[in-house]
Design a protein around this nucleic acid. Structure first.
Length: 437
RNA sequence: UCCUCGAUAGCUCAAUGGCAGAGCAUCCGGCUGUUAACCGGAGGGUUGCAGGUUCGAGUCCUGCUCGAGGAGCCA
């Protein structure tokens, strides 16, 4: 192939299929290493990173010196010959014949290839996401979301989306973000569950997938104020059936990521062998068994206490797979939880705790379907009756047993990627003291 | 809201109460196979803010601001 042939337009990902052919690549200058007469431009294009070799003899004095002055993150259209070379990272490199500088970047690009602190990186999140590691995490997030949707559609679930602006608390527990709504007080949604319960009476099996908002002043590596949740809900689905659905869904996601993103995981240093152990069935504990386990481990907890983060961590550390903790005491759970017929002091609710210290990734359960009992619980919890009339309608007109759960996407991404903090799992994290960029 | 820790060059960090420094980045120069390239040179500072102790404070004390980790709450 001679250098004057019309080049193929391609991407770094596919460059191997164009060995010894002329191609053009469009991207950004990630790094540059330069010698007197030979220069290495490290180009990234969104699909990968490739080394472009520029020799003064090949491109001439003029282009060589212009490229030699090029600043980090300048945008380029590079033309050259694809060569296989063991010295090149990735195995292939581009022998540059021509290069068009699309836009020369200012020479003070803040993200260097050296280490930076969390605050600095978050202040520059709009640029930080260009780095290979952040790109990989966002790609894996995208694939996890795709896997959730594929799985649920394969299982016959219909996507219905719940409103973001709502008149009242879903559970009346966590702090909500207030929004002024034409003179009325509204709140950003903290869950789509109640609306899902309406939708299943129309469609049978549904899920919503959207952002949720909690104004809690949490300052931990597991919390965001704006996070994404997938919430499946199904009519006639019992508690046991729901647990098996959760198990299949988590395994499907992990399998999808191992099949499609294993190289991305390895690049960011994830031990993929730990993920290969994620197969059904998941271990199960009742709340009562979990309390016994914690007491045997010397922790100070009594039956009826809610679990804190250290308790969850202690339970999860006993297993290499996610573990269900089920049948919590009624008094520490939400008003809509269905009592366990075998033990009315507990509910048909379960949390799924991820391994390796990532904590709760799913919370769910069977909902109360009896009108009288639900009415009683709404009164017990002092919830504003007028806001729940429509919810009670669902029990007045053809109520059926039903169950559902919510899975926090960022926590799943953090677990699968093996990240220290959920702030890296979402393009632009919102936290207690971070609204920008 | 509480507990713990921190804040020094654009970035990451060092400096026994005694001259404010290094690496990277930037700019200038050198180098034909670099791998977070390397070598030489230059510029770059209200040590978070306000007080205090001291002959002398980046360093010690008080208050404040901002941040990090954790708790509570949760997915």
């Amino acid at each position: 192939m001679d250098a004057h042939a019309t080049p193929y337009e391609t991407t770094v990902r596919d460059i191997g299929t164009y060995e010894d052919k002329m191609v053009t690549l469009k991207g950004w200058l990630y790094n540059k290493r330069s010698s007197g007469k030979i220069m290495f431009l490290i180009l990234r294009d969104g699909t990968g990173i490739v080394q472009c070799v520029v020799s003064k003899g090949e491109v001439g004095e003029g282009l060589f010196s212009r490229l030699d002055k090029l600043s980090q993150e300048s945008s380029l259209i590079v033309q050259g010959l694809v060569r296989k070379d063991p010295r090149a990272p990735g195995g292939y490199e581009l022998a540059v014949t021509e290069c068009e500088i699309v836009s020369e970047a200012f020479d003070d690009y803040p993200i260097s290839l050296k280490e930076h602190g969390a605050e600095f990186l978050l202040d520059h999140r709009h640029l930080w996401i260009r780095t290979p590691r952040q790109r990989n995490v966002l790609l894996i997030r995208s694939e996890i979301i795709k896997a959730c949707r594929d799985f649920l559609h394969n299982e016959g679930f219909v996507n219905v989306d719940a409103p973001i602006m709502t008149p009242a608390a879903c559970e009346g527990t966590t702090t909500l973000f207030p929004v002024e709504y034409f003179g009325e007080q509204a709140y950003l949604s903290q869950s789509g569950q109640l609306y899902n319960e309406a939708a299943i009476m129309s469609l049978g099996k549904v899920y919503c997938f959207g952002p949720t908002f909690r104004a809690e002043k949490s300052k931990t590596r597991r919390h965001l104020t704006e996070f994404w949740m997938v919430e499946p809900e199904a009519a006639f689905m019992g508690f046991e059936e729901m647990l098996r659905l959760e198990e299949r869904m988590v395994c499907y996601i992990v399998e999808h990521i191992l099949n499609n993103c294993e190289h991305l995981l390895r690049e960011i240093g994830r031990d993929v062998e730990r993920l290969k152990e994620i197969t059904p069935p998941f271990p199960r504990l009742t709340y009562t068994e979990a309390v016994d386990l914690l007491r045997r481990k010397g922790m100070d907890i009594s039956w009826g206490d809610d679990f804190g983060a250290p308790h969850e961590a202690a339970i999860a550390s006993e297993y290499t797979k996610p573990v269900f903790v089920a049948h919590f005491p009624t008094q520490i759970k939400a008003f809509y939880m269905q009592p366990d017929p075998d033990n009315p002091d507990t509910v048909l609710g379960a949390d799924l705790l991820a391994p390796e210290g990532y904590g709760e990734i799913i919370g769910g359960g069977e909902r109360i379907h009896d009108y009288t009992l639900l009415l009683e619980r709404i009164k017990q919890h002092n919830l504003p009756m007028e806001d729940y009339e429509w919810y009670l309608d669902l029990r007045r007109y053809g109520s059926v047993p039903h169950s559902g759960f919510g899975m926090g996407i960022e926590r799943v991404v953090a677990w699968i990627c093996g990240l220290e903090h959920v702030r890296e799992t979402i393009p632009f994290p919102r936290m207690i003291n971070r609204l920008r960029p």
